[in-house]
């Protein structure tokens, strides 16, 4: 069949546009639904008080605090480790068999299902190292889960620093380590930061890795040390939705809204940082 190329083009264009709009629908609906059902529950009391009467009333403060503790712990562990690994892989490693295996391992780490990380954390941190179900175990498990994100984005950031900066630095008599410290890392920092924040957003929203390693079912007090259990937003949401009968749906959606806002906020900060430094970048 011979069709007018102009008509063909129109049809193709419409199909592409339609698909793109369709992608936006679920995102928009998630936000709208959660906002509509949860906004009513949000109040200062909801954010700042302990849960009461078997989580059917009161606030979600311990879950918010717990999530922040876990995320902070995960970053404290994963950022230094991931950044050092990224520096080694980008600046020092040569293309040997061993290094190709390491790179393959990192890619595969990103593909491991999160519940497997949870079981791994249970076996290694909770039982083998004897940390018990604690903030420490949960943070380490989440940290391992976000390592690939941090390593990959740090490597991209480091690799995108122009080679000429390194040559200039070395030619001025700087050592290789000084060159990395003063001519590479400062210019890779925005990218490293962006990747870290995206990792944090992911860590904040995951349920499976904290399921066996830290999350408390119902613990209406704030943690006192890193060996305490805590409640966490995603697990709290799971518990409210499946384990506790007769919960007011406002509390459920309110919890979901808080979690969603935290994760979206992280992403927004990452995007803002990237945009800010991209506009300042001059090479």
């Amino acid at each position: 069949m011979n069709m007018n190329p102009r008509v063909t083009q129109r049809i193709a264009f419409s199909a592409l546009l339609f698909s793109t709009l369709l992608v936006m629908v679920p995102v928009g609906m998630v936000i709208v639904v959660i906002l509509k059902q949860g906004a009513g529950a949000i109040s200062w009391e909801f954010l700042s008080q302990m849960p009461r009467s078997g989580m059917r009333a009161g606030g979600i403060l311990p879950a918010i605090v717990g999530t922040f503790c876990l995320v902070l712990g995960a970053v404290c562990f994963a950022l230094p480790l991931g950044l050092l690994a990224a520096i080694y892989l980008s600046e020092y490693s040569k293309d040997t068999f061993l290094n190709r295996i390491v790179r393959l391992a990192i890619i595969n780490l990103a593909g491991v299902p999160s519940v497997v990380f949870g079981l791994f954390g249970l076996a290694l941190f909770v039982n083998f190292f004897g940390f018990g179900a604690s903030i420490l175990s949960g943070s380490l498990t989440l940290g391992i889960m976000i390592l690939p994100v941090i390593i990959t984005s740090s490597r991209e950031a480091i690799d995108s620093v122009p080679q000429s900066f390194r040559e200039v630095s070395l030619s001025l008599g700087a050592t290789k380590l000084q060159t990395i410290r003063h001519a590479v890392l400062p210019h890779a920092l925005p990218g490293i930061l962006t990747g870290t924040i995206l990792g944090v957003g992911r860590a904040a929203g995951e349920t499976a890795p904290i399921l066996f390693t830290v999350a408390a079912f119902y613990l209406p007090r704030l943690p006192g040390s890193i060996f305490d259990q805590v409640m966490a937003l995603p697990y709290h949401l799971y518990v409210l939705s499946t384990q506790v009968p007769n919960v007011d749906s406002g509390i459920r959606y309110g919890t979901a809204l808080v979690l969603l806002v935290i994760v979206l906020l992280m992403n927004a900060i990452a995007i803002a940082i990237r945009a800010h430094f991209r506009s300042k970048k001059k090479w």
Binding site: P162, S164, S169, S171, A174
Partner: peptide, 23 residues
């Protein structure tokens, strides 16, 4: 060595001049 394309490091004029000295 001076390269074909001038490559100032993305910092101030002063910090460029003293880069090697600081190291």
């Amino acid at each position: 060595i001076i390269f074909a394309l001038p490559v100032p490091l993305p910092t101030t004029v002063f910090e460029n001049v003293v880069y090697g000295l600081r190291r």
